[in-house]
Design a protein around this nucleic acid. Structure first.
Lengths: 144, 144
DNA sequence: CGCGAAGAAGATAGATTAGTCTAAATTAAG
DNA sequence: CTTAATTTAGACTAATCTATCTTCTTCGCG
């Protein structure tokens, strides 16, 4: 509900990278397989993340992708901002333009509270948190 | 960010209806013009809202649409549920299936809090609130 | 240097969504 | 009973999004 399709893919792919911090460069094909995503499409998304300096990449044999910073320093907000752009988070609740704090849309007042909650969640949650959750989940599933 | 395109249209159209509670039946063309929406497309959406019993309609001369209940008794949640379906609000934060309270996705714990905030907002906000906000906004704009 | 393994980039195809158009059904009014 | 206004339903078109394919560039290694 919060993320577009490619943004969700980006988070899942980056979580894979966060889970192997010292494996060097990981090729798209490997990431795609682990995260169960279509690899050529994922490649495009990762390319954008490289351009936004959230990932690094290198070509040639042994090449691939890796996080540009420690996972604990990349927030979901960083990812969403890169993939979905800034507009998505700033839109008014009902889509009546123009909408700002000065000329608020109907519901602006209540909606800013919701938006603040979302924003706080996105900025305070890092890929390290997601990776930690992924490990927990795997354990739960293997126990079952 | 919370609503699909057609859902946003639905809210805007229904807000128009909420603003004229005693005008009887309002044709799509009028609603579409007021809300600045494509009228044939809006017609489809309104039809679905009729089927979901959020609107009533009648054909023929003098026909059109009206709210099936007072605006204060129709929540944004009602509208979103009808137009976007139930799945949208239940999805996991990262899209890793399976995801439930028993086998939570990474972030499930933090995310349910965000989701609860959104849910609370949608259920507690009615079309009457939106209409009230729309009036306020219009005044602000005309003053400027 | 030359070969092969990768990412980068762009063209293309398929699927989904947004939007239009036409015809049919219904209703009110004369 | 006829006509005009209106919703309803469905076919159709256009645009966007998802995904694939192909080609090119870069890089490591022998």
């Amino acid at each position: 509900m919060l993320y577009s399709n490619p943004c969700e893919y980006a988070i899942r792919a980056m979580t894979e990278l966060a889970l192997r911090p010292d494996d060097g460069w990981i090729p798209v094909t490997v990431i795609a397989e682990e995260a169960d995503l279509p690899s050529p499409y994922l490649g495009k998304i990762l390319k954008d993340l490289v351009r936004a300096r959230l990932l690094q990449s290198t070509r040639g044999p042994g090449g691939g992708y890796r996080l540009a910073r420690p996972a604990s320093e990349i927030s979901l907000f960083d990812v969403k901002l890169t993939v979905d752009g800034p507009g998505d988070l700033e839109r008014c609740a009902v889509g009546l333009d123009p909408c700002s704090d000065e000329t608020p849309c109907p519901l602006h007042v209540d909606f800013v509270r919701v938006r603040a909650t979302i924003h706080e969640y996105l900025t305070s949650t890092t890929l390290a948190d997601v990776a930690r959750g992924a490990i927990t989940k795997e354990q739960l599933l293997s126990d079952a």
